[in-house]
């Protein structure tokens, strides 16, 4: 078959950073709305706090570095970082922890390494890891989804809790807060309960936790939109979720009473959000086609390993950070063959 090739000039796609980041934000909307639906206004307030801090920090650092902050802020990358961080945080986290995380992401992880395009680590995940390690109690105490607690957190309640502490809510706090499904599963398993017993608890839905699985579905929708628009490649999400399913399935097949159903891994915690929005960060991920498959698959594997035998309930942040370190090496060994060169010609 013959393709006709036009002579130059060719039509340009007009893709720039701002456009790409704008599409990422758009793709995050359905999942964000789902989080808001199940966990109340805290999510929105967190996004506001993190976004404001991120933009302010970016502005201050760029001024200190003697650069014009306007183009860097207009490209929306700081906002995307803050948004992703805010989605990963518990909805009623005290405001100053969100501020610390967001400022850390922009100032230390992004700008000190040279700004957008130079950071070796994913800023949102590095900040999440900082907060998780520094404030483990606050960071692992989530809200229960509203379908379970029968209480949807109003804007006023969320505002009060975030800015004045959880004492502001009084006894309501204990009613509406609890461990995440992954944390719940972890504690129960550590007490040698069988999966079939654990699953009888009302916190479980069809696959993951009730409410949680729907949040995952809506993030999946946004992720597929990004793949369709060509903003991200299908390789990293597919290989990450595929590897996670495969390993989880293997262990489930060996012993279904101590290893949860594979889909549980997929629809719990940050797996889907991570696969489509975080692991695919164009700056810190692997860039070669084969490299992306390896990179994604290793993240999936690490997520399972850390969730099952590690010290924390969820593992997406740590897995992504670990593989960020490995990405340059993976890229080095998976350089595609240059057109015209023989297979054995490159190192």
């Amino acid at each position: 078959m013959q393709f006709s090739i036009d002579s130059s000039p060719h039509v340009q796609g007009g893709n720039d950073v701002q456009r790409v980041m704008g599409q990422v934000l758009l793709a995050l909307l359905p999942g964000t709305l789902a989080l808001w639906w199940y966990f109340g206004w805290g999510v929105v307030i967190n996004i506001g706090i993190a976004g404001l801090t991120a933009v302010l920090s970016e502005w201050v650092v760029l001024r200190l570095r003697g650069r014009d902050p306007r183009p860097a802020i207009a490209d929306l990358s700081a906002l995307v970082t803050a948004w992703l961080l805010a989605l990963a945080l518990p909805p009623l986290l005290p405001w100053w922890q969100t501020v610390i995380g967001s400022a850390f992401a922009i100032v230390l992880v992004k700008q000190l390494f040279g700004g957008l395009g130079y950071n070796p680590f994913n800023p949102a995940m590095a900040a999440y890891a900082l907060l998780l390690i520094s404030f483990p109690a606050d960071m692992t105490h989530w809200l229960l989804p509203s379908v379970l607690s029968q209480h949807s957190v109003s804007f006023g309640e969320a505002w009060q809790t975030i800015f004045q502490g959880k004492q502001a809510l009084g006894p309501t706090w204990d009613m509406i807060s609890g461990a995440t499904p992954l944390g719940h599963m972890r504690t129960e398993l550590s007490q040698n309960h069988m999966i079939s017993e654990i699953r009888r608890s009302p916190v479980w839905g069809d696959f993951g936790g009730r409410g949680w699985e729907w949040v995952g579905n809506w993030f999946l929708l946004g992720g597929l939109f990004l793949v369709w628009r060509g903003v991200i490649s299908w390789r990293i999400p597919a290989s990450m979720l595929g590897a996670l399913l495969l390993v989880a399935g293997l262990f489930w097949a060996i012993d279904a009473q101590t290893h949860p159903f594979p889909a549980f891994h997929l629809f719990s915690g940050g797996a889907i959000l991570g696969a489509f929005f975080i692991a695919t960060d164009p700056v810190t991920a692997s860039t070669t086609p084969r490299g992306q498959l390896i990179y994604g698959a290793l993240i999936g594997l690490l997520v399972f390993v850390i969730r099952s035998w590690g010290g924390y309930p969820d593992a997406v942040a740590f897995s992504v950070l670990l593989m960020n370190m490995a990405a340059p090496t993976i890229d080095h060994y998976t350089q595609p063959r240059v057109f015209g060169a023989r297979e054995d010609e490159h190192g």
């Binding site: 390690i133 520094s134 404030f135």
Partner: peptide, 11 residues
């Protein structure tokens, strides 16, 4: 004051 635990840890 709720310390920033990370400062005490190796990072």
């Amino acid at each position: 004051y709720q310390g920033l635990l990370l400062a005490i840890l190796p990072p």
